[in-house]
Design a protein around this nucleic acid. Sequence first.
DNA 1: TTCTAAAATGTAATCCATTACATTTTAGTA
DNA 2: TACTAAAATGTAATGGATTACATTTTAGAA
Lengths: 335, 335
Amino acid sequence: MATITDVAKEANVSVATVSRVLNKKNSVKPETVERVQKAIEKLSFEPNMSARNLRRNETRVILIIAPNITNPYYSHILAGIGDAANESKYSALIYNTSGDIAREKAGLEMLKKKRADGAILLANGMNSTWIQEYSKEYPIVQCSEYALKLDIPRISIDNYKAATDVMNYVIGLGHKRIATISSSNNYVSTALRLQGYLDSLKCHDLEIHKEYISMASVDYSFKSGKSCAYELLQQKYRPTAIFCISDILALGAITAASELGIRVPEDLTVIGFDDVDNTTMFHPYITTIAQPCYELGKESFRILNACMNDEKGINKKIVLPHKFIIRESSAPISI
Amino acid sequence: MATITDVAKEANVSVATVSRVLNKKNSVKPETVERVQKAIEKLSFEPNMSARNLRRNETRVILIIAPNITNPYYSHILAGIGDAANESKYSALIYNTSGDIAREKAGLEMLKKKRADGAILLANGMNSTWIQEYSKEYPIVQCSEYALKLDIPRISIDNYKAATDVMNYVIGLGHKRIATISSSNNYVSTALRLQGYLDSLKCHDLEIHKEYISMASVDYSFKSGKSCAYELLQQKYRPTAIFCISDILALGAITAASELGIRVPEDLTVIGFDDVDNTTMFHPYITTIAQPCYELGKESFRILNACMNDEKGINKKIVLPHKFIIRESSAPISI
DNA sequence: TTCTAAAATGTAATCCATTACATTTTAGTA
DNA sequence: TACTAAAATGTAATGGATTACATTTTAGAA
């Protein structure tokens, strides 16, 4: 593997000049530039990144801490981050943590070790404070989930607003017995959606029934959506609408309903959240809140990039718009 | 940020000794080790990876070249690679190429630039030969897809066998008018599955009808599965079974059938491939070939690791077992 | 106690690109 | 032609960890 010294010899110049050509400094004579470039080509030289990074004290690598890259919600964000990073000549190191905080920390250690210049966290718990110590020293942004009390840049949708959008719509359809399938995880998004659900009921003078609030397992899985829905739907006064905090849960709820002989949307309105791939793969197509996943990813990188460049006046709380998409799984109540 | 020199001073030893402690060389007195470790802790020192990598001429990073991390098939492989890599203290740099060869190459340049020690390709076209030049110089393995004429390590299932498994089963159910939804991409997997389809028909003295071979768009999308199925099913002698080379295509086919009033599996048998998440999310659950995605990923890393360590006698053609899972979308023909 | 081999530690070169500072070349002016 | 400022190029230090080789310390033998 050729080094800059080899190129310098080949082109009959000093290493400094080669470096200037590499970094497009303009104080090199055009003919010299050409001579150097020919040498570079001839030796098929590529600068050694470790050496460059050592000297420049940067890596052009960012870290992505994700709980589960297999989840399409995250994978779309990942794609957005990756594309934005690429445009700015950054590479993305992905840490799949399976929600294990030890692995999250192990990932962030990469910052200390100078393997990466900054990090994007995709699933920061709303009460976690340990990020702070890293955030003080390194550029970190939180995407879609965030810790409540920390002043670390974050990008997300307005989950509370989204939930009230859903509820206003459902209530507008005439539903009064409205259930929700939430989760016992530790995410702000979950908390805010639940709060939106509760506040909307209150706001419309509808009673809050504990039996209508079901907690899915932390993984939001299809299975748990199904079993939550089973419970909800087998009550004496079963709900006529279910607001699920993810599409997969909604899918599970619809499956449960169909197995119980309850028609969606005629007998039951089901609303999802996220609008990932599966919402229009079979009927009824799911009414849902669409999150701009890819854009969330792109924007996260933009902010991280700004932080890495020490730009002033970075907006630390970015809210991207969601979209409420009405499809087939919701309908006015039929008494 | 503390350096090894700072630690050396703090512990009153030379940098060499600190380095020995860091790298667990045994020629250091236990008490010295302790002293150094205290200094490391006190200064919260972490070795600078760029410096280490430069000196060691390795990066402990591997490259993953993937066409679309959003596709659950790939994302499961990615998860497998990531976990295996982590176990061996490697990090994974993911390049999402969107199938763009220029970006694949840009990714592989990372090897030349010493940003990564090896690469795993997830979607190498069956005729692409350009990889060879990289493979000669750097450890590269191909996962699930591979170039036919190159002697580069590869891990995959036996796609031909899987296809004949499907066909033998379908033919055994009594079907004679069997269609396939394939794709006009450039993957061996696709070619082998089609070959398996054709050979099985021949082998059972069934005629091959061009009208029964439908080519989906290269992205294997739900939409294109649906439109292919529409075409297949609106023929005069419509097929009674469709072998789809992906579950998403099968999902599309089932949707098309249901929209045309054709019942699955009573009037039409539909078989998928891959067994990603969506096969059991609604009825009919899809009969399909399950690929061991996660294991394919893990095994890919193992092989790559062996290559990076210059191990001898590496098996260059690894075939992992697939599983044929019979569910609800297939049934004996009802004449 | 003295000597020797082994153990422990230290010194300095090395990996390779970048860049501050130094020197040489060039172009333009007087 | 002589001189100066600007342009072009070169020299050598730098970044931080590793490691070959050198030196010192220690333990055990004589």
